[in-house]
């Protein structure tokens, strides 16, 4: 399988994500759930990877660990050359801010903030970014998603599709190395879903690395690489289209 890596592997140049024999176990009072089991996965710059599988197979857990929102129980994980297990909370926060853009199934916009402020939010967490630079980045990303005319709207004043586009604009505003999308079309109708998928493809064509979790086979097959999980293990890892 392409991209398989051993647990002790060192980061390779050009690889943004490198998981080596990564496992995640949830421990309950009387029960241990193995959400992920010895996952080996490498993702290169410019790739568009879809991670598919049935409900409960570990897709979202994998994405959470890749996005530094959760920690693995064992194994290794390198993000843009950084060993995730050696990072403290502040370093993880900085990496999330600079290297990763999130798109969630339920948008996760802050309802008290306007469209502009929501998109600006990750940029406000950067230390050396001037206000004017941030403004350009916000407007540019909203331009990309076609919402530059809704700057002062609140999320509740937008449709579901528009809200998800705001979430995409927020994800790309800081020019991250990779966009992690967790069921980005899960809450949308087919028309809005198509619009978001097209947007993703367009972003990838412009060089953005994308890793998307989906349970929809059609959406999954629009990616360039298809990874399927079953019971916490990778059972398929196919290149659908050549990325070179």
């Amino acid at each position: 399988m392409e991209g398989a890596a051993s647990a002790d592997a060192k980061p390779e140049p050009g690889k943004i994500i490198e998981l080596g024999s990564l496992s995640k176990v949830y421990s309950g009072e009387n029960l241990e759930t193995h959400a992920l089991h010895k996952i080996n996965l490498k993702i290169k710059e410019g790739e568009y990877v879809s991670i598919a599988g049935q409900s409960g197979c570990g897709k979202s857990t994998l994405l959470s660990i890749i996005g530094l929102l959760d920690v693995c129980s064992s194994g290794s994980y390198y993000l843009a050359g950084h060993n995730a297990s050696s990072l403290n909370k502040s370093e993880r926060a900085r990496l999330r801010n600079e290297e990763i853009g999130f798109v969630f199934q339920s948008f996760n916009l802050i309802s008290d903030l306007t469209v502009y402020e929501n998109v600006e939010l990750p940029l406000t967490y950067r230390n050396n970014l001037k206000k004017s630079e941030a403004d350009c980045m916000v407007r540019a990303s909203l331009e990309v998603v076609g919402l530059s005319n809704r700057l002062d709207h609140f999320p509740s004043q937008l449709s579901g599709g528009q809200q998800q586009r705001v979430a995409v604009a927020r994800a790309i505003a800081g020019s991250p190395s990779i966009i992690l999308a967790d069921e980005p079309c899960g809450n949308l109708d087919s028309k809005n879903a198509e619009s978001i998928m097209t947007l993703m493809e367009s972003l990838n064509e412009n060089g953005t690395t994308i890793c998307m979790v989906t349970h929809d086979p059609e959406s999954a097959k629009r990616a360039k690489r298809y990874v399927e999980l079953f019971d916490g293990q990778i059972v398929t890892d196919d290149v659908l289209r050549d990325t070179t």
Partner: peptide, 16 residues
């Protein structure tokens, strides 16, 4: 709580 989660996902530090 979820707002805090979202902000952390976007890279906000704990102190911030």
């Amino acid at each position: 709580t979820q707002e805090i989660g979202t902000k952390r996902a976007l890279g906000a530090t704990e102190g911030r």
